[in-house]
Design a protein around this nucleic acid. Structure first.
Length: 653
DNA sequence: GTAGGGTTAG
């Protein structure tokens, strides 16, 4: 086959513009067939465009199709090589990318044209984690004029950064003939991703000029390193901000557990007329989900619809599903899910499964997973984390063990620490502490704090002092600053009446300066958020009517058989004192406030930062029947839907 | 052809 040179005909132009609009492989095939029929396959420009658009289309099988067309060409030009090099790097096998490049170098000698492919080749090296190969390319580049091309030298720096070779990258950076904004910004990003906050700040100070990207990089990087206060500092000093600056700051707040600040900032952004785009919406939805403010969530959902933002764009659907689930509105989550579930994004499925999990709907989560299998959507490691969490909260032990096997055998996903954590949690929560401990002994990775805390938490519930003590000491050893391990240990001792040991734990906490995280519950009434801190009812300005309401509830419930569960009190105080401390649990205060300030029969939604305690759980169950209210409580881990005297968790949590 | 923001997780 020879390539003939014909003037660009109308036919060629038409074909090229059709190629530009191509959205499926079927269309590519049709165009190609038409090109064969009209002999356009021998028209250099058109055939190059076919290969280029096909290589860079990201459609399934498009790359192999492009390469089969490529193999029938006698003298491919640099443009075809470029497209295949970039396409293989971005959407295919990065190794192919390097092969195409080497192939090109051996048959072409237009150096300036070859340079265009180098950024992709270097990126391919970082994707392949090929440090040695990368260094070889770097060595070759140094000997040529490529080194003076900023696109190439910047890509070299980026490659070493992505390979985790930060110091090497810095040496290259220092050696570069010329550093532009992109070089500085890349180097700073590299430092921040490696957690090198000081080195990043130093470069940020040193750089000769800064642009918006420089500032935004600092905000995002500081935020991700957990340095929210530094991010705030940079954000406030900017004269000009774009939507990325706002989004980075909002995310920094979310990471730092300051979701209400994140929401406030989003409102401020809107009031200044900055239009939120998809990432901005996704980040604020995470904040709203965390706060459990469904009204704001619905507002954002309306915003998405009225601004014609497609549910399929980015992580929009998955964030909405998560938001509705975490706000307790699982039906709304389902509605969003049903509208996108025909799509192939496993993130949407994962969010739905995890959403069902926190509602204790294990069977339903399994059904979603099975549907996913029927639709041939590949589950990933997060799918299984959600699924195991669903089994764990739903008490589906056999299913959990079965799918733990399936995950490895059928899906080839090697269990990670988190998966083992789930399995341990599943067994322990179901009362099988022995098998849970066996998993810890036999797993190939060292168990972490969370694994031991799962054992500890289950032991607390079961009242197993021996295993609980062992787990607590291990958990404390692994993270001495986590107050919850001490608190659970103390609760085990208290339940067993071992008040001396309770005192020892308290002393240990005091000596190490570990403070118990105060319980905090919030409730939204008439669009206003009301927060209650444990034992601080008067400080919040709610006065004594909350307290008298709780007393009224207690005496009413005692008639129904309510007995305060005094083992839930950390302090060893007089019996009467203990009773009143129980009454000051934040969820009881929020509940009392809700009963006073909402109309008869209206549902009550409460969000708590820690896990709900046994006493409050029993208490709220009774309130739901005596006062005929639907009460929804989201604790640190899951939802409890109380109605007619029982809870959706079936007392299993 | 090179630099900045978003999710699902025991």
């Amino acid at each position: 086959m020879t390539t003939i040179s014909v003037p660009v005909s109308t036919l060629a132009n038409e074909t090229i513009s059709k190629l530009k609009r191509c959205k499926s492989m079927k269309e590519f095939h049709q165009i190609h067939a038409h090109m064969i029929k009209t002999n356009l396959v021998n028209h250099t420009l058109t055939i190059s465009k076919l290969i280029a658009f096909c290589s860079l289309s990201a459609l399934p099988n498009s790359l192999s199709y492009a390469s089969s067309v490529f193999r029938r060409i006698e003298n491919p030009n640099y443009f075809i090589f470029y497209a295949l090099t970039k396409g293989s790097c971005d959407y295919g096998d990065p190794l192919d990318s390097i092969t195409y490049y080497v192939d090109m170098v051996s048959c072409l000698n237009e150096l300036d044209k070859i340079a265009f492919s180098l950024p992709s080749v270097l990126k391919a090296c970082s994707k392949l984690r090929a440090f040695k190969q990368g260094k070889q390319f770097f060595g070759q580049i140094l000997k040529t004029q490529f080194w003076f091309d900023p696109f190439v030298s910047n890509s070299v720096v980026r490659m070493f950064l992505e390979l985790g070779e930060i110091e090497f990258a810095r040496r290259v950076f220092d050696k570069m003939p010329e550093r532009d904004l992109i070089s500085w910004n890349s180097m700073i990003t590299g430092y921040l991703r490696a957690g090198e906050v000081d080195l990043a700040s130093q470069l940020f100070e040193e750089m000769p000029e800064r642009d918006l990207v420089s500032f935004n990089t600092m905000i995002d990087g500081y935020g991700k390193c957990g340095r929210c206060e530094l991010a705030e500092e940079v954000f406030r000093m900017m004269n000009e901000k774009d939507v990325v600056s706002w989004t980075s700051m909002i995310s920094a707040y979310v990471i730092d557990h300051h979701s209400s600040k994140a929401l406030d900032l989003f409102r401020e952004m809107l009031s200044l007329g900055v239009k939120p785009d998809v990432p901005a919406i996704v980040s604020v939805l995470a904040a709203i989900a965390d706060l459990g403010f469904v009204e704001e969530g619905k507002w954002v959902h309306d915003y998405i619809s009225s601004n014609k933002i497609n549910l399929n764009s980015g992580f929009i659907a998955s964030s909405l599903i998560e938001m509705y689930s975490k706000c307790g509105y699982i039906e709304n989550a389902y509605d969003v899910f049903r509208r996108v579930s025909h799509g192939q994004k496993n993130g949407d499925w994962n969010s739905m499964i995890s959403g069902l999990a926190i509602h204790g709907l294990g069977q339903e989560a399994l059904e979603v997973f099975l549907e996913m299998e029927r639709m041939n959507i590949k589950p990933d490691e997060i799918t299984f984390l959600g699924l195991f969490s669903a089994f764990s909260h739903g008490g589906l032990v056999d299913e959990g063990q079965y799918y733990f096997e399936i995950m490895q055998e059928k899906y080839n996903i090697a269990p990670k620490l988190q998966h083992y954590g789930c399995l341990i949690d599943l067994l322990a929560r179901a009362g099988n502490l022995v098998d849970a401990l066996k998993v810890i002994q036999h797993m190939p990775i060292e168990a972490d704090v969370l694994a031991w805390k799962a054992i500890l938490s289950a032991s607390t519930k079961l009242g197993n002092v021996v295993i609980g003590e062992k787990a607590a000491l291990r958990a404390i050893e692994l993270n001495p600053n986590d107050s919850s391990s001490y608190v659970m240990l103390s609760n085990i001792y208290a339940k067993a009446g071992k008040w001396d040991d309770v005192a020892k734990v308290r002393l240990m906490m005091k000596q190490r300066g570990v403070r118990k995280i105060p319980g905090c519950s919030s409730i939204v009434v008439d669009g206003k958020v009301h927060q209650f801190l444990v034992a601080k009812e008067t400080d919040m300005g709610y006065g004594s009517n909350i307290h008298s309401k709780i007393e009224e509830l207690v005496s009413r419930l005692k008639l129904e058989g309510y007995e305060p569960d005094l083992s839930q009190v950390l302090l060893d105080v007089e019996q009467d004192g203990k009773g009143s401390l129980l009454n000051l649990h934040s969820e009881k205060m929020a509940l009392a406030f809700g009963l006073i300030n909402t109309s008869n029969g209206a549902p009550i939604h409460i969000v708590k930062n820690l896990r709900i305690c046994c006493d409050c759980h029993a208490f709220i169950k009774l309130v739901s029947s005596v006062y005929n209210r639907k009460i929804v409580v989201r604790d640190q881990k899951r939802f409890h839907h109380f109605q007619n005297g029982s809870c959706s968790c079936r007392d299993y949590w």
